[in-house]
Design a protein around this nucleic acid. Structure first.
Lengths: 209, 209
DNA sequence: AAAGTCTTGATAATTCTTTAACAATAAGTT
DNA sequence: AACTTATTGTTAAAGAATTATCAAGACTTT
C-alpha cells in the first residue's frame, strides 16, 4: 500500500488509543467525544482529532465517535486483523514472561515457535508450544515461514542471528537484547526495546528534582 | 536543582549515548568526533552536538570528545552516581527476568526488595534477595525507604498499589502493568512500559509495507 | 612556529508537531 | 419542524525539534 506517510509520533499513539477504546468498550460505553477522551488520556482534543483524521473521518459532528467502530478502524490500521506468525528466540525468564503475558492473539500475532540453545530448556512446553533447539531454526523457518521474531538472546548472538533470520524470510523484529539492531533491508522492520534505557531515563528524572 | 529544562527527546537519547560510549570505551577507543559517532548511531552530527551542549561544552575543537570523560559526564547527568533503593512488586516471570537481567548497579539503582502475593513464591531467593509477601510492604518501606518501585502486577492491583507506595515515600515508578499510571504528585515520576504497544507498532509497520 | 586541517559550539534555517480557531453540520430539544 | 447545542474536520498559527552553516579555536604536521 502507498499511503500518505504517517508520522512516527502518530503511529506510537495509535496503540494507546486502541487500549483506551477497548477499556471504554468493556465498561459498556458506546460513544465518546475527542474532548472526553482527551481528558482521560491526558492529551488535547485537537491532537486526537488530528491523529484520527490522518486515516479518515471516523467521527460525527455533534455526536463524537462510536467507540466500537473506531476501535475496529484503529485495529485495522494497526494490522491486527492480519495475523503474523511469530517466534521467540531466547527462552530465559524474559522469553517466558513474554510468551505467557503478551496477548499475541489480540494484537495481530500468532506465537508459533520458541527457541533456545540451552539443553535443559529444550522440550519444555510454554503455552502448549515446545521449546526447540536454535540449531533447528533453519528447518523450522523453511517449514513454517514465521514473519516476526522476538529476540531475548545475549548481545553477542544478536547480529548473526538477525542476519540468519532475515535470510529465512523474517520481516519484523522485536529486539530486547542489548545489541542495537538496525533494519538491514528496507522491507525489514525493527523495534528495539532497551529496558535499561528506560531505567536510566527514570534515573534522570528523579535526579533533576 | 533548577536547570534550564531539557526536552524529552534529548533525555531519551542520553541513555543511548551512554551505551555507545561504553562500547567504544570497552573497545579501547579514547576519542571520538560527533561525525564518527553520528555514523555509528544513525543520527546527525549536528544533533549530537546540540544534545550535548544542553549540558555543557564537553568537546574540544579539532579533537572531538574524550570518550571516558563524556561517558562519565552523561552518567552524572543521568544520576547514575546517586544510587536509588529499588523494589520490584510482582515476581512472576517478568519480575524475575527484570531482577536477573537488568544491570541495576550500572544504572544508579540498588535492588533491595522483591514482593509478590503468591504464597509459593514467598521465601524464594532471587539474586540473593528473598521474595517477601506484599502484605509486609508497609513495614519494609518504613524500615528501608525505597525510592523506586518496579511494577509487574496485574492491571487491577496497580492503582491502589501505586497510591500506597507514594504514601510510603516512593518517588519513581517503572510500570510494566497494563494500567496507564500517571504521576499523582509533581515530585513523582512514572515511566510506563507497554510491551503490547510496541508489538502493535511493529504490526503497523509490517502492514504498511 | 607557521600553515593547514579538523571539529566544536552557536546561530540560523528548516522541518515537523502540536495547539488553537472556527465554519460546517449532525444530534438533541422544545 | 425550527432552534439550540455539541462536536467534528480542516485550516491556520504557534511551538519544538532537527538539520545546516560557519566562525572560532584547538590539534597536527612540516
Amino acid at each position: 500500500m502507498t499511503n500518505p506517510v504517517i508520522s512516527n509520533s502518530v503511529i506510537r499513539r495509535l496503540p494507546r488509543y486502541y487500549r483506551y477504546l477497548g477499556d471504554l468498550k468493556d465498561a459498556g460505553y458506546t460513544r465518546i467525544s475527542s474532548k472526553a477522551l482527551s481528558e482521560q488520556m491526558n492529551l488535547t482534543a485537537s491532537q486526537i482529532r488530528q491523529d484520527l483524521n490522518c486515516f479518515g473521518g471516523f467521527g460525527l459532528q455533534g455526536y463524537g465517535y462510536n467507540i466500537d467502530d473506531l476501535r475496529k478502524e484503529i485495529g485495522h490500521i494497526l494490522g491486527i486483523d492480519a495475523p503474523k506468525k511469530t517466534i521467540i528466540i531466547g527462552m530465559g525468564n524474559l522469553g517466558k514472561a513474554l510468551a505467557q503475558h503478551l496477548k499475541f492473539e489480540n494484537k495481530g500475532f500468532i506465537l508459533t515457535g520458541l527457541f533456545d540453545v540451552k539443553e535443559s530448556l529444550i522440550g519444555q512446553m510454554v503455552r502448549n508450544i515446545p521449546i526447540r533447539s536454535t540449531s533447528t531454526l533453519d528447518e523450522f523457518c523453511r517449514d513454517n515461514k514465521p514473519e516476526v521474531a522476538i529476540l531475548t538472546t545475549p548481545k553477542e548472538a544478536t547480529h548473526a542471528l538477525s542476519d540468519q533470520l532475515v535470510k529465512l524470510g523474517v520481516k519484523g523484529f522485536l529486539n530486547f537484547t542489548h545489541y542495537d539492531l538496525t533494519a538491514s533491508h528496507p522491507e525489514v522492520t525493527v523495534e528495539n526495546i532497551h529496558l535499561g534505557d528506560s531505567l536510566m531515563t527514570l534515573s534522570y528524572r528523579l535526579s533533576e528534582k
